[in-house]
């Protein structure tokens, strides 16, 4: 059953790498945006909130097309990044990671924002009376207390990134060995005669990865929760 062909292994490997890179790169932005939305009042807050959630409600193909226009080699942001840093997104696995990160971003922000909002602000006040300035309060109190929510958000983000299809295929196409993730490979296999067995193998692998991610997040969250309640 698990005699995957090298092409299938490549797709699995690529999917994991894309989802991991997407999650890790989205995390600092996710924490920053979640903190802004949870703690600050500023002009345009609901606009920011709306933009962050847009990928959740837009058709994925629209998000992918917008990425293509902006981050493609000739796009305003894409050409700038290409010329300044030599970073190219179009038709590369990095582009797939970008698409996955953007699509999963609302889930990441939502989970982290909820955990920021659930923190007892009075603990932050206590930290400041003990001599901690704003940045240190965030680093030593806010962030550790939000950890279970951050982990939950990362797992959601990873799972979403792993399964992302529409935006990715629109933005970076479906190139075996470069941008062909598990989802794209399954799609391709279902389009050719005799691809059912291979598709089923990849389907099972997806289920296993998703379950493993969920179990791992449960474990991390429980461990973090236990620490805080002293059990």
């Amino acid at each position: 059953m698990f005699n995957l062909t090298p092409e299938e292994w490549t797709a699995v490997h690529l999917s994991l790498r894309i989802a991991l890179v997407a999650t890790v790169c989205a995390l600092p932005f996710g924490i920053a945006v979640a903190w802004l939305l949870a703690r600050k009042d500023f002009w345009g807050k609901s606009l920011l909130d709306g933009i962050v959630h847009l990928p959740l409600v837009l058709p994925p193909v629209v998000t992918g097309y917008l990425l293509l226009i902006w981050f493609g080699r000739r796009g305003p942001i894409g050409s700038f990044l290409d010329q300044t840093f030599g970073i190219v997104f179009s038709f590369r696995w990095t582009g797939a990671a970008l698409a996955c990160g953007v699509m999963a971003f609302p889930l990441l922000v939502r989970a982290i924002r909820l955990s920021f909002e659930a923190i007892d602000r009075r603990l932050e006040d206590a930290a400041s009376t003990l001599g901690a300035g704003g940045f240190w309060v965030f680093l030593t109190v806010t962030l550790p207390l939000a950890l279970p929510g951050i982990i939950a958000g990362m797992v959601l983000c990873f799972a979403k990134a792993l399964g992302e299809f529409g935006a990715t295929i629109t933005f970076v196409s479906n190139i075996p060995g470069e941008t062909q993730t598990i989802s794209a490979a399954i799609y391709t296999l279902t389009q050719v005669p005799g691809g059912d067995a291979a598709a089923m193998r990849l389907v099972i692998i997806s289920v296993i990865i998703a379950l493993a991610a969920l179990v791992a997040s449960e474990w991390f969250a429980r461990r973090a929760g236990m620490r805080y309640h002293g059990d």
Binding site: D120, L123, D125, T129, G131, G133
Partner: peptide, 20 residues
């Protein structure tokens, strides 16, 4: 003067120890 520079200790009604 911001709270963290006042050097004033504060014991709260509910302790407010850091749970982590």
């Amino acid at each position: 003067v911001p709270a963290h520079k006042r050097r004033i200790g504060y014991v709260f009604q509910e302790g407010r120890l850091f749970p982590h």
